[in-house]
Simulated scan of single mutants.
Amino acid sequence: MPNRVSIDHRVMGGVPCIKGTRIPVATIVGLLGQGYSVDEVLSEYPTLSRDDILAALRFAAAAVDERELPLRMTA
């Protein structure tokens, strides 16, 4: 599967976006985290595909996996 996430300093200041769009990965993951369904996200962003949404989730999971997480959450 081709990489659907692009990081380009000329697009949205280098924020990870779905390739060929200006839609940040964080926006997609945030909407899903707020309870939007995949179909609702696709309705809000009709240029996206289901594969784009899955790519955003894979990218976010890999990003979290690479970082050291705090042992305790702080408020």
Results as ranks from 00 to 15, higher is better:
Arg50Trp: 07
Leu42Arg: 06
Asn3Thr: 15
Val5Cys: 05
Ser6Glu: 15
Arg67Met: 13
Ala56Pro: 06
Ala61Glu: 14
Val29Ala: 06
Val15Gly: 01
Ala75Ser: 12
Pro2Trp: 09
Ala61Ile: 12
Ala56Met: 08
Cys17Ile: 11
Cys17Val: 15
Asp39Leu: 04
Arg58Trp: 09
Thr27His: 02
Ile23Val: 12
Val11Gly: 02
Leu42His: 08
Val29Met: 00
Gly13Arg: 12
Ile53Lys: 02
Arg72Ala: 11
Val29Gln: 01
Arg58Asn: 13
Ile28Asp: 01
Pro46Gly: 09
Arg22Leu: 09
Pro24Asp: 03
Pro2Arg: 15
Ser49Gln: 14
Leu48Phe: 04
Arg4Met: 14
Gly35Tyr: 04
Glu66His: 06
Gln34Tyr: 04
Ala56Ile: 05
Val15Lys: 08
Ala56Gln: 07
Met12Cys: 14
Pro46Gln: 10
Gly35Phe: 06
Leu48Pro: 05
Leu31Ser: 00
Met73Pro: 04
Met1Asp: 14
Gly30Lys: 01
Arg4Trp: 08
Pro2Thr: 15
Pro24Glu: 01
Val11Asn: 06
Leu32Pro: 02
Arg10Val: 07
Glu66Gln: 14
Leu32Met: 07
Asn3Gly: 13
Tyr45Ile: 00
Gly35Leu: 10
Arg72Ile: 07
Arg10Trp: 11
Glu40Ile: 00
